[in-house]
Design a protein around this nucleic acid. Structure first.
Lengths: 249, 249
DNA sequence: ACTATTTTGAACTGTTTTGATTGATTTTGA
DNA sequence: TCAAAATCAATCAAAACAGTTCAAAATAGT
């Protein structure tokens, strides 16, 4: 087999797996141990990976600057039980919507091995992260709102009308008894409402700080989505018509 | 068998496979090793492929595409005379298109104080940078191509059909006498062509390394765009029907 | 039909790549 | 802590591959 093809295979495996064993490479490339070692040595000298006893791992991204994307990547993708729980609800072959924002970003690292998944989003940060994790992504086009990196406008809403989602996952700024789910921006609220109407199942991701708090615009009633949270206050639990999932830490 | 037919076969195989072994070519063309080697040598000298031990590889190795974040904000926005020159062409109130890619990114920092400007793009990295510099941005929605962070697909092309741009600025991988402007990806090439057809003025940003070099797909003739470059080779200058702007360093 | 030119394939030689073997080093588990 | 197991680095001969040369074959021109 060609040297460069082998190297490419190794790097491909690493992208998916982060760690890789010699035996796996041998099997994938049908080459001998010696050859694999040579390949790894070469790739290491090129800085493409780091050799460890028994295999290799990806070169940890040290060159990342604290700019928008990188910062978000580090913070957003960190282990998060709410995101994990939410991602576990997603089935193979589904079409789901991920809301622009930071909450839904915590799901992304858990989505990368779901087969046939298509994620639709209007968030530029979300789209970038999905791309980092090699998830099939459809970005809804529109005007870019600079503060939140969300795409908005009539093109976005028109386009959403043509979709039907299996599930949608929403961020939220406030959850209150009176106003339901609330968010600061009118246009983004409209989009959230629209998406929820066009989804079989709607979920709202929220940590404790969001409860008993009202933001500016209401986008949905409490009954219309399942709340996924770490610590659910009692007044929610007592409402029989509100669905919730509590992640045990 | 005819020489040109053999070369055609080799390039066809490469289109599908990215890598190719000598033996495969021998079988496909029923020619001897010597002939295959000669063919490969010729094709390599024409920049159509890269010879590697045991076979060949397509010239534009996308897989080497540095991990996207590596070419981070700092690199993209760095002072660049080509980008500055290009940005100076843009007038207030215009609607322009910026191609996905790194070349056009060098314009962005110079665009932020142009009043009433709307920038349309299908590149996620471009969109993020525009947002960083508070430029009004419209993102064309579509499927996200993970390698280049470009949005592609029929939704993109359909949407572009509804636009009319004052100017468009394109990146390029190769500029050659025969093939004109070329790029590695078919779908992105289609988008480039389409955008150029819908623009009053089209510009191609290119540094010296792009000249006398052919990538995979041709997206435009040399006459249909103004080349903005730092050092323009003589064969371009001598062609009376090709427009160019040379940035004096 | 004859010659000049180009193209082709085979033979040969030098180079690179490969996989097995060896002994050293590290990891593992009791 | 120690010994067995696994992994590693180094070496080397065999195999695969590349470059060169040259004569035969195909092609083009007169």
């Amino acid at each position: 087999m060609l040297t460069e093809l082998r190297e490419r295979n190794i790097l491909d495996l690493l992208k998916q797996k982060q760690f890789i064993k010699i035996d796996e490479i041998i099997e994938k490339n049908n080459s001998s141990v010696s050859t694999v070692r040579r390949d790894l040595k070469k790739l290491e000298s090129e800085g493409k990976l780091v050799r460890i006893h028994g295999g290799a791992r990806i070169e940890s991204n040290l060159q990342e600057e604290p700019d928008f994307q990188v910062k978000s990547k580090l913070n957003l993708v960190e282990k998060n039980d709410i995101g994990k729980k939410a991602a576990e609800l997603v089935q193979e072959g589904e079409v789901i919507f991920l809301d622009a924002g930071t909450s839904t970003a915590t799901m992304i690292s858990y989505l990368s091995n779901i087969k046939g998944l298509l994620v639709v989003t209007n968030g530029l940060n979300i789209a970038n992260l999905l791309s980092d994790f090699d998830v099939n992504t459809y970005v809804i086009g529109g005007l870019l709102k600079n503060k939140t990196r969300a795409l908005i406008g009539t093109e976005v809403t028109d386009r959403i009308e043509t979709f039907q989602f299996d599930r949608c996952f929403m961020g939220v700024n406030g959850i209150s008894k009176d106003q339901g789910f609330t968010t600061p921006d009118i246009q983004e609220a409209q989009i959230k409402t629209l998406v929820m109407n066009r989804s079989r199942q709607a979920y709202v991701l929220a940590d404790l700080t969001k409860f008993d708090h009202t933001s500016f615009v209401s986008f949905s009633k409490l009954e219309d989505a399942t709340i996924i949270t770490d610590t659910c206050p009692n007044w929610i639990k007592n409402k029989t018509n509100v669905k919730y999932m509590e992640v045990n830490k």
